[in-house]
Amino acid sequence: MNKAKKMPIGMKDLFYSKLLEDVKGGLTTYAPPKSLAGAVSGNLNPNGSITPFFSDDGPTVVVTSQGLMELELGIDALEKEVAAEIFGWRIDSNGVLIEGDSSNPPYIALGWRSETSDGGYKYVWLYKGKIQPPSEEYQTKGESVEIKSGSLNASFIKRDSDGEKKVSVHSNDEDIKPEVIVDWFTKVYEPDQELATP
């Protein structure tokens, strides 16, 4: 029996969660997830490398390594409260967003879901990264109005606690527990230490 192809055809429900603690050999804890912005597009590059070793006139060993996971994210617009939290900025008593040079943005987890061609959704969490403030583009209105969307660049690394970078699951997987999907955006998913038997 042929399974339906799970090709991505959408992106929605973009959430972030501030990383509170990440202890080597210990636990990683997060704040409750919050909505980041409306998702427009996402391009995730794992930046891995493959290096062959040659001997006896041919390749005999292939070594792989994982790099910095980079995400280019298209969004509609950021609320100032979200921008202040993810970039380490401040909002003063008059409600003005202050973008200081000495800001130290926190590590966050980033999650979303992508509709797929089989009618389900792929759910994703990236565990530990920082987002750069977006570039801003403005243009005067002419006879036709061009709407400008935002773009964010983020870099993600492995967690100190367990070395994990990313988790994902598909809602139509036969072995997935329903509560995993239901709870996906209420808390950052933590892997079960008991692995499934192949």
Results as ranks from 00 to 15, higher is better:
74 G>I: 05
122 K>F: 06
130 K>M: 14
172 N>P: 01
81 E>S: 13
117 S>N: 04
114 S>K: 02
27 L>Q: 09
11 M>D: 01
3 K>R: 12
165 K>D: 11
88 G>N: 03
184 W>R: 01
149 S>E: 11
142 G>S: 15
13 D>A: 09
122 K>I: 11
46 P>Y: 05
95 G>V: 04
120 G>I: 00
137 E>G: 14
64 T>A: 08
113 R>M: 11
27 L>I: 09
5 K>D: 07
143 E>N: 14
101 D>W: 10
192 D>S: 14
184 W>M: 04
173 D>H: 08
185 F>N: 00
167 V>N: 09
107 Y>C: 08
61 V>H: 13
110 L>Q: 00
154 A>E: 06
3 K>D: 12
156 F>S: 02
180 V>W: 04
60 T>E: 09
153 N>Y: 12
133 P>T: 04
59 P>K: 02
90 R>H: 13
181 I>F: 02
152 L>D: 05
173 D>C: 01
56 D>M: 09
70 E>Y: 01
174 E>M: 10
45 N>S: 11
125 W>P: 03
88 G>E: 02
35 S>W: 08
69 M>E: 07
101 D>G: 10
190 E>Y: 05
73 L>I: 06
102 S>V: 08
72 E>H: 10
144 S>H: 12
72 E>P: 04
78 L>I: 01
165 K>L: 10
111 G>L: 04
17 S>G: 10
74 G>A: 05
83 A>C: 05
186 T>E: 13
160 D>T: 00
153 N>W: 05
142 G>D: 07
140 T>M: 13
59 P>N: 03
7 M>D: 06
109 A>F: 02
132 Q>C: 09
171 S>G: 10
72 E>A: 12
94 N>Q: 07
168 S>F: 15
117 S>V: 12
104 N>P: 05
186 T>S: 14
93 S>V: 15
148 K>V: 12
59 P>E: 00
138 Y>T: 11
18 K>M: 13
43 N>P: 06
153 N>R: 08
175 D>A: 13
197 T>Q: 10
174 E>S: 13
21 E>T: 13
9 I>Q: 10
191 P>D: 01
69 M>L: 15
50 I>S: 10
118 D>Y: 11
176 I>V: 15
173 D>T: 03
185 F>Q: 01
185 F>S: 01
106 P>M: 07
113 R>E: 08
139 Q>F: 07
48 G>R: 04
108 I>F: 01
116 T>K: 03
30 Y>I: 11
91 I>G: 00
174 E>P: 04
105 P>L: 06
18 K>I: 14
188 V>I: 11
11 M>G: 07
56 D>P: 01
159 R>Q: 07
172 N>Q: 09
174 E>K: 13
71 L>N: 05
7 M>T: 14
26 G>D: 08
138 Y>K: 07
6 K>L: 03
175 D>K: 13
163 G>S: 01
137 E>A: 15
127 Y>F: 15
152 L>K: 06
175 D>I: 10
39 A>T: 06
106 P>A: 11
134 P>G: 10
91 I>A: 04
152 L>W: 05
124 V>I: 08
24 K>N: 12
129 G>W: 00
184 W>K: 04
51 T>N: 13
44 L>Y: 09
112 W>Q: 00
114 S>C: 07
185 F>Y: 03
20 L>M: 08
